[in-house]
């Protein structure tokens, strides 16, 4: 599986030059525009393809994710951005028909390699989902779940500390400190999503994947989560999928634009939103479709 990635990047996309594909046509074999590599990568993806049965969901995507940055994935629905995200912690494994090829390395180790344990991978690459999905347990147990299963806390005081720290970092402590034993499902939507973030950071991962974390929330809750993401950047690499371009512009440093399974363009968020180089990106940004 681990091929020579850098050589393969340029393999496809000979027929369509940058900016030449009209938006109404599919960008088959599109070559990515912009700089896909970074100087301090955590995750390096090369030529990732995902098939669901006969259907190809993403095609030849190559992208680096850097330490301490927020990278946003944008694009019209069905463009494969969530699928790509779920490759990074091998959550696609839970879908029987999904097949992933190409290479994805985390700190130089291929995550789809036999030697890479999926449990450990997911402990290192945490994930927050589109819909808040707290377990039907108490607030405390929700946060303590990860440390418990991984054996991260030696005793109860240590666990209490992890729970408290995680809730504090997720900005939820003040709101829930008096009702830690109430069910997590009883919190409001925004609180639930922050609980899920607290749950994720309680494991101390290296990367946090966020799959449209605010799509089910109201604007105020969204603003809180966005602030939180900005803070979390100090310690983690964050990869966020969003269908809101404004959100991408607000929270991310880099932005990747996906279109029908192709990674069309990557660049600094400023550049993508002010000066997109690819026609498809520009059309999407300017709202001509999407």
């Amino acid at each position: 599986m681990a091929t020579e990635p850098t050589e393969m990047v340029q393999r496809t996309g000979a027929t369509l030059g940058p900016g030449s594909a009209p938006p109404e046509r599919t960008a088959q074999g599109q070559r990515t525009v912009g700089e896909i590599t970074v100087s301090n990568p955590v995750i390096v993806c090369r030529n990732v393809n995902v098939h669901y049965g006969d259907k190809q969901a993403i095609r030849d995507v190559s992208l680096d994710i850097a330490h301490n940055e927020v990278i946003a994935m944008i694009g019209p629905s069905g463009c494969g951005k969530s699928t790509f995200l779920r490759c990074l912690n091998r959550l696609n494994d839970t879908i029987p028909t999904a097949k992933v090829t190409g290479s994805i390395t985390l700190d130089g180790v291929d995550v789809y390699d036999r030697k890479q344990d999926v449990v450990q991978l997911r402990a290192r690459v945490g994930m927050v989902f589109q819909k808040p999905n707290p377990f039907p347990k108490s607030v405390y147990e929700n946060v303590a779940y990860g440390p418990r299963i991984h054996g991260l806390a030696g005793d109860r005081t240590e666990l209490d500390e992890i729970v408290q720290t995680s809730l504090m970092r997720a900005g939820l402590w003040e709101e829930v400190k008096d009702r830690l034993d109430q069910p997590g499902t009883a919190l409001s939507g925004g609180q639930q999503q922050r609980l899920c973030i607290a749950r994720t950071i309680a494991v101390s991962p290296e990367v946090i994947l966020m799959d449209e974390p605010c799509s089910a929330l109201d604007p105020i809750a969204t603003a809180r989560i966005e602030d939180l993401i900005d803070e979390l950047r100090q310690n983690y690499a964050i990869c966020i999928v969003t269908h809101s371009m404004q959100q991408a512009a607000r929270v991310s440093q880099r932005t990747a634009y996906f279109h029908l399974g192709d990674l069309i363009e990557v660049g600094s968020t400023d550049q993508i939103f002010t000066n997109p180089r690819h026609k498809l990106t520009e059309d999407y940004i300017t709202g001509r479709f999407g």
Partner: peptide, 27 residues
């Protein structure tokens, strides 16, 4: 039991039996 709960547990690095015993079954 919704798949999202399983995903949440897998996303934290739980094994399948941990997910079943600690999340799916209690739910």
């Amino acid at each position: 039991v919704p798949q999202s709960l399983r995903d949440g547990s897998y996303g934290l690095g739980a094994t399948q039996s941990e997910t079943i015993r600690r999340v799916v079954f209690p739910a």
